[in-house]
Amino acid sequence: MAESILSLSGVRADIDQYHILHGVDLEVPAGELTVLLGRNGAGKSTTLRTIMGLTTVTQGKVRFRGEDITGQPTPRIARKGIAFVPENMGIFSLLTVRENMVLAAVDGPMDPARLDWVFDLFPPLKKFWNRAAGNLSGGQKQMLAIARAIIEPRELLLVDEPTKGLAPAIINDLAGAFEQLKQQQVTVLLVEQNFNFSRRLGQSAAVMNDGGVVWSGQMTELADNDDLQHELLGLGLGEHQ
């Protein structure tokens, strides 16, 4: 396994008076796509938010490239090279597609060649460049959300359930985009409920349950082991359409 770029050790986090994460241990290997799986309410989204500093860590450490980033303010964490696509996509619906992208390119004007690459991945963005992002369809919004995360090279992408509520054709397009990122050896931590999508893309995997990571290893191990899937994810045979 490659050296890990991000590691969480014993991370606990509360939201209001509720204990949500009870000691998460997670390693994200550099240059790979890691899938974070788990049932609804297992704490996957909270884990990503905690990495970004959006939820306060009460115990444990988050390390990014060896540096302790626990408790740092969100903008500083982002500037270290971590892009985050939240579950609700978090696009600015009143801004145009272009303005959304302009803000995402924090280091200055967008690189035209890279923008062309993004347009190739997601042609609708080019078409609706000057439209309000709020008017995009659900799939187009997800494309915009991912495009924002990759318009400049980042060390690590955190993506929360990009396939949620999308039609199979669009899911396929998104998978294509992730394949390209994989080829470029971009490190991705992907939360995903869609097991087929995860199996197709994931190199490493981790499974969460009740606020902790209960299993981690190679994706192939999990994909080939129906009993393990059943135990960890509640997936029955024949359930992966």
């Binding site: 903008p75 009143l94 803000l103």
Partner: peptide, 24 residues
């Protein structure tokens, strides 16, 4: 201007402005 875009974005969602790396 970029500052103007940021202000409009911030009115919509402070959190996402921070996620993009700007100090709101």
């Amino acid at each position: 201007t970029r500052v103007g875009i940021l202000i409009r974005a911030g009115v919509e969602s402070r959190e996402m402005v921070e996620v993009q790396g700007y100090r709101i």
